[in-house]
Write a protein that binds this DNA or RNA. Structure first.
Lengths: 199, 199, 199, 199
DNA sequence: GATGAATGAGTTTTCATTCAT
DNA sequence: TATGAATGAAAACTCATTCAT
């Protein structure tokens, strides 16, 4: 009745559930996955799931956050205060495409789920304080200050750039045929570089 | 007991359902709307719904198609064979923002629903034969042929442009604060014009 | 997949469910009965249950109401404006015991269920306007007015009398050994007659 | 990590749990209280709870028993072999109302819970050997023997009296508006005194 | 004795869809 | 064509209880 009671340490268990969720969600999609599927994949009881996550939705959010936690430090490493806007932009794009392609399943999951997840997630992703947004913002800000590009409404420009990035990344990793990734990345990079021409 | 049973002609009835669906979906969102809500709003019996639509999902798709059917003729009207790429692009953007703002509810609905809807819808929207895609495609094609812009992988460029448009339009109509619409449209237009610089 | 679609008229169906519920509830008690048990007993699908009752709880309440609807007209028939308090009281007791013994299962059910049911039910039973309460009230009121009994706080007296009646009736029909009913009724009648002595 | 582990002596710990349970149950009601709530309130681990009580239900029963254990010695103290039935009865009523009002929360708890609790509890309360029942029984028995009151079926009379007492006490402490307590007690006393008239 | 992580059975309710009338 | 009563699968979440440590 009671199976192996191997009590893993809390973070381990959480991780275990997270990667089980990652797997089944990437395979079958949010709506086709039951909490019991995740639990089964993680080798735990359903109830245990709820010891670590408040709801099915919250795992997806955690997974999204995870994705962002992956990008943030890479962006930080990429950051070069001396680099111009037109040097930084392609590097950032590169980092995001790279991270995305290494975590294609996470991408797929993030493009999924209930509408509400998205808004929460995207809101968080673009929030003032968030590292990704922060990097982007600084890039634009410095670019304008240093006179490298024309003035823009940074908020808006960022959202549009993110929208295009998201489209490109998802196309490259989720929907498009494999192999198109690089062409997409290059096209996107060129378009964005052009979009904010050197003064 | 003797219910009205006023047999409207098929297309009329379909329309009636469609606009009922539009209303309730825009109000409450896909997951919070029952087929019976749509039926009630349309003033028909639940069963009747299924005489005109195969499933709940299919209304959303029909509504999405409707949105595209709204844009297509306007694009056609806007189409000017003599116009250059850089003249056409802003006009097309204008048309889409305009249509979207006149049909903000449809926008909201389209940003909603199950993942599957989206893929179906977006696939259809970008399909070779579709009028919207066709217009965009021609615009790019002619632009390149006439030497107005550099060569690009049109498929990819189109997807990216659409991605940015979608982001901008939804931001303008669904999420962003009211009033930002014009600023978004202008920023987006400038960015895209720049993205494909005059040769 | 779809079994006999014999559409009974609404009240018939309701009755059908009500008596199924009455049966299984009396047998197994509120907490041990699933909605599916009631549905099975009624020979309908689970979903159908919810077409006629809003919740499991609401059937019990309906059943309770039913019990009161049984008593009320009998009390009305028993009512004799000319009768003194001491003539009326035993008759009322008689009526209640009689009704209860004819509907012993309903009694059992009413002594059951979640606390909330009871309060709702009992509140309703004693509510100003309710026929049972009304009869009792009038009996006391007239008794006092005509000088047949001493003054009392009718509200309180009624509650206490009802409490004793409930105990007696449940003892007679639910818990006590069969056959004690009459002895209980007689003892109770005598006690209550004495409790409000002739002046 | 090194939690207090202050091993209280068994009865102390039991008491600790009991009063925690008393508190939370009175506040939120049986169905809305989790074992973990009780444990938390008691400052112990969930598992520890089960070292002292066999089940959630059993605490309620223990609490009920506790109530009776409170009444019993008071009744004993009140007991006066020389007192007549009509002297004893009001004193007993007084004692019960008094104890109940001092322990209104226990009253509330006892009027709650699953049906099963009640029957167990009430059965126990009226069982031959139980002190409360014993006192009542003796009171009736002596009253009859000494010719102070007419013969009655003591078992039945007791049950009815207890039913009325329970109603009155709960009305006074749980449901009725505060302040009515005394009026209820007086009405009840008068009614019961009358119910068993002096010969 | 104490802990608290793990268990997993258990149940109400919803709602898309069907189909006899 | 229209109806709307009937269907029944489906799933998230809770929580009393256990037991390895």
């Amino acid at each position: 009745m009671t199976s192996p009671r191997r009590t893993e340490s809390e973070p381990v268990r959480r991780e275990q559930i997270l990667s089980a969720a990652r797997k089944v969600l990437a395979d079958k999609g949010y709506d086709n996955v039951k909490v019991s599927d995740i639990a089964a994949e993680a080798g735990i009881a359903q109830g245990t799931f709820y010891l670590y996550f408040a709801s099915k939705k919250s795992v997806v959010i955690a997974l999204g956050r995870r994705m962002m936690e992956l990008v943030a430090p890479r962006l930080a490493r990429t950051y070069d205060p001396a680099a111009t806007f037109h040097e930084s932009l392609p590097r950032y794009i590169e980092v995001m495409f790279q991270t995305a392609s290494e975590n294609a399943d996470l991408c797929r999951i993030m493009s999924v789920g209930e509408e509400s997840n998205h808004e929460e997630l995207e809101a968080e992703m673009l929030a003032e304080g968030h590292p990704i947004a922060a990097h982007m913002y600084r890039m634009f800000h410095q670019g304008i200050e240093r006179g490298e590009i024309d003035g823009v409404d940074i908020e808006i420009a960022m959202k549009l750039v993110m929208g295009m990035l998201k489209t490109g990344i998802q196309e490259a990793n989720c929907f498009g045929q494999p192999g198109t990734g690089d062409r997409i990345k290059e096209t996107l990079t060129r378009m964005l570089i052009n979009a904010f021409p050197k003064k």
